[in-house]
Design a protein around this nucleic acid. Structure first.
Lengths: 198, 198
DNA sequence: TTGCTCATGTAACACGTTACATGATTGT
DNA sequence: ACAATCATGTAACGTGTTACATGAGCAA
């Protein structure tokens, strides 16, 4: 249900094509809700059926024609309705493959496990760097919008900042966690070694 | 793809019914990969077609018959194969509705937003308590298994502890994050107030 | 007698992923 | 010449959610 509103939400800033939406997704909402282009096209079709968006073709000489989507009044109302109706509970389903693998790790070699934790840390460090880059990207993108849309995007900055902060904070804590796990694994390996000797 | 292996992984400890699997899921893997009973039944049917599990009916006088599922040798190999083949990248898709709502929060009242952040914090605090309870539950469940299965579950404890730690750590950082957001929202509200007066 | 736990599932739908098809233009 | 970007989508499949159907036994 949320993807639908994410799409509507972005369309409140400016009419745009599915392709444009995809780019904006990748540079913004993406950090909180991922979606592929094919999903976006499908959602747009569904939204049009519901009359939450309308579309018209815009010809371009140099590039392929664009199908521009525009949010309707009903769409805007539906979006605002959703946004102001916070759910009872915020907890969303967890699906983290790495943690699942850790759960079953008793059947994995300790050395291999440590290696994987190290890879995990490396990936997280990259993410941290990417996120800081991403914040710049978002601001640039916001500026690239025309007139009113740019102003609307500007309003976003504050909340965008909250999201970036959340990502950075959880990311950092995951690094700390992985480091602690490695430390414990190594410590127990040492103890195991002593036991063998004694 | 992961649910399949999560189911297989639990069946490596002991043969059991879909219903039993569901209970174990809720008390263990659930914190890293959620699944509903209907999903589990479907996966079991699919796994049986692939001959990764076999089933036989066990009659019970007092309660309905149980369909016991048992992992096959192929199933065990498939599971171990998956487990020891770590993916290139660990990042899994993000879908967090709360954050999505924050992204669009420029259209929500500041007071309302602060209220929601406070609800978010309350929920997280509950989760923390539940998780600590959950750790006990898991250990009890592990003990409730018969013979070999109990021993196998015991091996799990170390990794289960890693998972609990991860949950507690990220949870705590989310609380800190939300508190900081509230502080910022309130600070800006005050500044705004001053501006109005000046 | 109402509702919970035990125990099995089916059906319909919603959402997500992957692969494929098409075709112009721009940069190396 | 080749790859990337722009631009649209479809089809098939996999996974997740929700609601429903069935029926025994037990506890308030």
């Amino acid at each position: 249900m949320s993807l639908q509103y994410a799409v509507l939400g972005i369309l409140t800033y400016s009419p745009m094509s599915g392709y444009d939406l995809g780019k904006i997704f990748n540079k913004s909402v993406n950090y909180t809700w991922t979606a592929s282009l094919s999903q976006i096209y499908r959602e747009l079709a569904a939204l049009e059926k519901k009359e939450y968006v309308s579309s018209n073709i815009q010809q371009q000489d140099d590039r392929p024609d664009k199908k521009m989507y525009c949010i309707t009044e009903e769409g805007r109302l539906a979006f605002l309705g959703w946004l102001n109706d916070f759910p009872e509970t915020f907890s969303s389903p967890k699906r983290d493959e790495f943690t699942l693998r850790i759960f079953f790790a008793s059947k994995v070699d300790d050395d291999e496990l440590i290696k994987q934790f190290e890879r995990f840390i490396a990936e997280r460090r990259n993410f941290n760097a990417a996120m800081e880059e991403g914040e710049k990207n978002f601001m640039e993108m916001a500026r690239s919008f025309k007139q009113g849309a740019a102003a609307a995007m500007q309003e976003h900055k504050r909340y965008w900042h909250f999201i970036v902060k959340r990502a950075l904070m959880t990311n950092e804590v995951l690094i700390t966690w992985a480091e602690e796990c490695i430390r414990e694994l190594k410590a127990e390996a040492l103890q195991g070694g002593k036991k063998d000797e004694a």
